[in-house]
């Protein structure tokens, strides 16, 4: 494939990625999105999940938090709250966070105010562990 996607990924703290990639998979709000060069302009929000992209036959994985993506003529801009590449993730910390969230959820009822917060934390930790497992 001659054409490439120009992927830019930014968090409030820094620019995480700025690369040419072959294809991209994103955790869209209503389902996984696969993007290849020549995609129609699209704007969507993302949920907590795993983003992966292929570059030169290599597969890369990134854990992302809330964000959204703008696809415009093969230029892709991903804006997320946090992004961690698979080799950057501290597995021990993620596991600890998972344990904490599980503990907290056990004692809480569904109506609790912080239930949703803890559930989101649980999800984040799970994604992190999942992505870390794919590190090369």
């Amino acid at each position: 494939m001659a054409e490439k996607l120009k992927l830019e990924m930014v968090t409030p703290y820094k620019q995480v990625l700025s690369e040419e990639v072959d294809e991209l998979t994103l955790p869209g709000l209503i389902g996984e999105l696969g993007i290849l060069p020549g995609h129609t302009p699209l704007l969507t929000t993302l949920r907590v999940g795993e983003m992966s992209y292929k570059k030169g036959g290599q597969q890369y994985h990134v854990a992302v938090n809330w964000g959204y993506v703008e696809i415009d003529e093969d230029a892709i801009t991903v804006l997320v709250d946090t992004a961690e590449k698979s080799d950057e993730i501290d597995l021990a910390r993620a596991k600890a966070a998972l344990g904490r969230a599980e503990e907290a959820l056990k004692t809480m009822s569904q109506e609790d105010k912080s239930y949703a917060v803890m559930e989101a934390a649980l999800q984040r930790a799970m994604i992190r562990i999942q992505v870390a497992g794919k590190a090369r």
Binding site: L29, P41, L42, L43, T44, T45
Partner: peptide, 17 residues
């Protein structure tokens, strides 16, 4: 210049952004 597809829809996206 660009006409976007919004997913799930424009209002929802705006609501979040």
């Amino acid at each position: 210049s660009v006409d976007y597809i919004y997913e799930p829809n424009r209002g929802e996206v705006l609501e979040q952004i």
